[in-house]
Amino acid sequence: MLRFFLSRLALLIPTFIGVSIVAFAFIRLLPGDPIMLLAGERGMSEERYQQLQSLYGFDQPLFVQYFHYMTDLLQGDFGTSIVTKRPVLQEFLTLFPATLELSLSAIILAIAIGVPVGVIAAVKRGSWLDQTVMGAALVGYSMPIFWWGLLLIILFSGILGWTPVSGRISLLYFFPPVTGFMLIDSLLSGQPGAFKSAVSHLILPTIVLATIPLAVIARQTRSAMLEVLGEDYVRTARSKGLPPRRVIGLHALRNALIPVVTTIGLQVGVLLAGAILTETIFSWPGIGKWMVDSVFKRDYAVVQGGLLLIAAIIMIVNLIVDVLYGLINPRIRH
């Protein structure tokens, strides 16, 4: 198992180096002078320019620059925001919990609904239930989620007035972040109503972000279940006199989950792409909105650092999914 893990980790190294080259090249591909872009200063003295040039090392050959860039990265230096003058990594770490909280609740929602729905559709294949569910899944899969979010806002915030339009918690509440997860922090704060406020802020973004993964997981679960239900070992399980609940929910599902886990892993990229849109719509203070804002503010140091950090997260999650895949598939484990 450890060897499996390490070999997968080793495979990531060239990809990570490649990703770092992309991030490194980004600032140099932008039209305009990289020093101006990085320093964000309009009009500067020749002296200041020279100073910055040697600070950023732009006067040195490219590979030396890359080497410095890499050493900085390995020491946790992902650059400094032009706008806030704070280290990019620090900004990232303050904002990331918000994205993580949103993404986790979205993927949990997607799995909690998508898997059972896919199983039921497969068991009752061809029925009106199956057709409805799969029709809905295709609609979800085709959904422009930025529009979906706006629609939900119109309905639940505008017409019904049930949910707030933006943010993570009502301005009435203030408490220092402990875990960074608003749901947990609001509970810890002990302020009455804080948790409820956090939940009501979280609901709509979660639904929006979960829509596409939910559709994909439901479709994938159904087709995996259809395949598995025809297998000999399912017949064996039935021949033992086991109730359908156990035959389907344990013997068939356990095998069907193997491809589904891969699908769930692939949703990480989808989630982060969706987070860009969802966070923008709901003014959710996470890294997706951070990236979009930085692109607009031309805070290229943040874009560069964020690009790298987000790619790193995706790679790490994929590694975890690979390991999970090994755990649930005995044929790989041994």
Binding site: Y233, R235, T236, N255, I328, P330
Partner: peptide
């Protein structure tokens, strides 16, 4: 009444 099948390997659940 119990039954055994033609393909022994396929008849056992690979996950358990």
């Amino acid at each position: 009444i119990a039954m055994i099948f033609q393909e022994p390997i396929a008849s056992l659940n690979p996950c358990f």
